[in-house]
Design a protein around this nucleic acid. Sequence first.
RNA 1: GACGGGGUAGCCAAGCGGUCAGGCGCGGGUUUGCAAAACCCGAGACGCAGGUUCGAAUCCUGCCCCCGCCU
Length: 325
Amino acid sequence: MAKKMVVILGPTASGKSTLAVNIAKKFSALGGPALGWNGAEVISADSRQVYKGMDVGTGKITKKEMRGVPHHLLDVASPKRIFTVTQYRALALKAINKILKKGKLPILCGGTGFYIQAVVDGIVIPAVKPDWKLRTKLERLTTEQLFEKLKKIDPKRAKIIDRNNRRRLVRALEIILKTKKPIPALKKNPLPYPILIIGVKKEKGELKKLISERLEKRLKQGMVEEVKKLRESGLSWERLKGFGLEYRYIARYLKTTKDFRNPLRFERISEIPKSVNFEKSDFFNRLQKEIEHYAKRQMTWFKRDQRIHWIKKQPEAEKLVKKFL
RNA sequence: GACGGGGUAGCCAAGCGGUCAGGCGCGGGUUUGCAAAACCCGAGACGCAGGUUCGAAUCCUGCCCCCGCCU
């Protein structure tokens, strides 16, 4: 049994998590034990599920849904602090090695392409914590000024960076100013063993339907309350907005209800009716669109990776894994 | 029937004689230190028919349609 890893990726709502668990559960049938494997464990590759307290909105798998298959990298960070790819990669590598040491197959499963790439292709970068003081200072500059500044102190990075992207400009400057040296040239350090990458493909219409059904379910499961709780635990509206999608939209909604600009006013969590009628509302439709766009962006990311084996149904994935092992 | 307002891309909406509105949606893309974030590019239009003009979404004439209001 040589070291190997399986990656399962795909757009949001495509059913990746379920597939990962199913594969792990069917591991014997796929011939794992016969080849010396002791089983399989899942590592989440999701930039939002790493946060504690973000469950309903991220579609975090429940204990019950795991069906005994161990999952890693869920709830490893506080939403109050920024979590970055760098940290993700370090934790993921640790988890992968632990799993391999047990003689088990790691299944990296998630929709954050950047995180997956960081692990699989290995982008090596030292960590620099965000410096809020410096950021507020930089935020005062115009985008153009930020770019000029970067060009002066690190022309190499300036050459390839998106000069319209304030966020990236600020982060680049932060790193340079904190480490006192230019951004080091990219070093790739890919995992040294075979990796099977499976992509879950869905027809556009079907995916839309899945997204819509899931969104409805989440709202019923108390997503509004989840966001309210996060807010009450001290997260700023700005921070919630940064999480995007559900968190962004519900935060906006709660904010307006709090500002008394909305006819629906909820002072305490208990006052939020169990079934605020979001369905068919402007709120619902917009959020739905937003999630569809997100799915599209994910696909844009995945499309360029030629190593991905795209599948439509589980049996195809099983076949691939069996052969791979 | 009279008067008033209006008909601009799938939707909302500016322009009212001479590069371009814009937003949403749609399509494509970037991403190598916040990535569910952030950012970029593209297609598509002036209700219809004439006229005036070097040039018309924009002015004129006629017609069609919608909304309001009055009888």
